[in-house]
């Protein structure tokens, strides 16, 4: 059972001082971060992984302050999927996914353990990348790279998943595959936190949402309670209509 909590955290965002935010996220929950561009979704995710300083307040993982956790144990607990893939030196899909195991094998210089290799293979299978495993990242399409990055995160097997736009570059089939994979991970005891642009993905897959307004305090809570037109229209400054298809709530911009 893992708990990620924030007490009056003020994010380090340029030229605006956002209101302090407090929330608590637990194992089994799938959180969707919703909000307009530039509101700080990515900054929040990076802050929760201690990759970025914040102005004030405290962040705790299981009651331990974030900055008190050693970087390798933190990397075992918290994994990040970045929105923009940094173009590094050439590497194959297999090598990249295996790097997800680094937090566990950093001290084992010589070889990667059998468990590392098994998890890597499992990750490649989970994202149907087996056939691409020896290909270089540079030769992959955007969607294939996104799946490689998710596979690396899968191999990292963190307790808390900070996932920035998981469906970027993915076709519809892979969107569904990835979203169901991520929600499965939550069911297995992970805390899943993802920033999303697509309200309907949030409505379908998230148990909880956090609505990040540029000009007022965040709203965080159960998805069913918060995903209403009154909350969402001011969030995006856009008139919306709500409907129901196949038992699922859907939102559309109105004319």
């Amino acid at each position: 059972m893992t708990t990620l909590s924030a007490r009056s955290v003020v994010l380090d965002l340029p030229n605006c001082s956002p209101l302090p935010m407090s929330f608590e996220m637990k194992s089994g929950e799938v959180w969707g971060l919703l909000g307009p561009n530039g509101v700080g979704k990515t900054t929040l995710l990076h802050t929760l992984a201690n990759l970025r300083k914040w102005c004030s307040g405290n962040i705790y993982i299981d009651q331990i302050r974030l900055q008190d956790i050693h970087r390798l144990s933190l990397a075992q607990k918290v994994g990040v999927l970045f929105q923009e893939h940094q173009d590094g030196l050439p590497a194959t899909v297999m090598e990249t996914v295996l790097l997800g195991r680094f937090p566990y094998s950093a001290s084992n210089w010589k070889n990667d353990s059998r468990r590392d290799q098994e998890l890597t293979t499992a990750a490649l299978e989970a994202l149907s990348l087996q056939s691409l495993s020896t290909r270089s990242l540079h030769q992959l399409s955007g969607g294939e790279r996104q799946r490689t990055a998710i596979a690396a995160l899968y191999a990292q097997a963190p307790d808390i998943w900070l996932v920035d736009e998981p469906t970027n570059h993915l076709d519809l089939h892979h969107q569904v595959e990835v979203m169901s994979l991520l929600s499965q991970q939550a069911k297995k005891g992970g805390v899943m936190i993802m920033s999303l642009h697509d309200l309907n993905l949030a409505a379908r897959w998230c148990s909880h949402v956090m609505l990040m307004y540029p000009d007022r305090s965040i709203l965080a809570g159960q998805a069913q309670q918060l995903l209403t037109l009154e909350n969402l229209e001011p969030l995006y400054q856009q008139k919306l209509v709500q409907g129901e298809i196949d038992g699922q709530t859907v939102f559309m911009p109105s004319n």
């Binding site: 990076h46 992984a49 990759l51 970087r71 390798l72 144990s73 933190l74 990397a75 075992q76 918290v78 994994g79 990040v80 970045f82 940094q86 173009d87 590094g88 030196l89 590497a91 090598e95 990249t96 790097l99 997800g100 680094f102 937090p103 094998s105 950093a106 210089w109 990292q156």
Partner: peptide, 23 residues
């Protein structure tokens, strides 16, 4: 040489490396 494995991670970019626990 003891840092060779960390360098593999660093080759993927500093942010990714930091997220994987590299100083």
């Amino acid at each position: 040489m003891p840092f060779a494995k960390s360098l593999n991670v660093l080759a993927r970019g500093p942010l990714q490396a930091a997220a994987l626990g590299v100083n």
